[in-house]
């Protein structure tokens, strides 16, 4: 792996994590990443997300005048708590934003115990 690749590995995407009534949402900015180039793995309690942006580094015949961003290889991991129903995690990617939905585990939902 050369230096340039090493630098590209593991750009940390800005992420929001929030709880809504239905469960937890992880929202990540991954501009330039197409849905088929995202890999999401859950191994035990580890959630790992990787994606490479397909933003063109250099278009033929284009002279760069000003550059503020480039292609990136995004990578981020999270540890899932037992509150998450790991079998029903859903993901969607629209407009360069990955949105993961992690429903609350049924066993962890608040319950009222009736008194018999």
């Amino acid at each position: 792996m050369n230096n340039k690749e090493a630098r590209n590995v593991g750009s940390i995407p800005p992420t929001d994590i929030l709880e809504m009534e239905d469960g937890f949402h992880i929202i990540m900015d991954m501009p330039g990443v197409s849905p088929d180039s995202v890999v999401i793995d859950i191994e035990e309690s580890e959630l790992n997300i990787q994606g490479a942006s397909s933003y063109p580094e250099a278009d033929a015949g284009l002279r760069k005048l000003h550059t503020e961003f480039g292609a990136a290889r995004y990578q981020r991991s999270f540890t899932l708590s037992d509150f998450v129903d790991r079998d029903n995690v859903k993901a969607e990617l629209t407009n360069g934003v990955l949105r993961l939905f992690l429903p609350k585990a049924e066993a962890m939902k608040p319950r009222r115990i009736p008194i018999s």
Partner: peptide, 16 residues
């Protein structure tokens, strides 16, 4: 990002 060719200018806006 701003780039140029003979035909015009190309402005790429990173707006996820």
């Amino acid at each position: 990002n701003i780039a140029e060719n003979d035909d015009g200018y190309i402005v790429d806006v990173c707006i996820p």
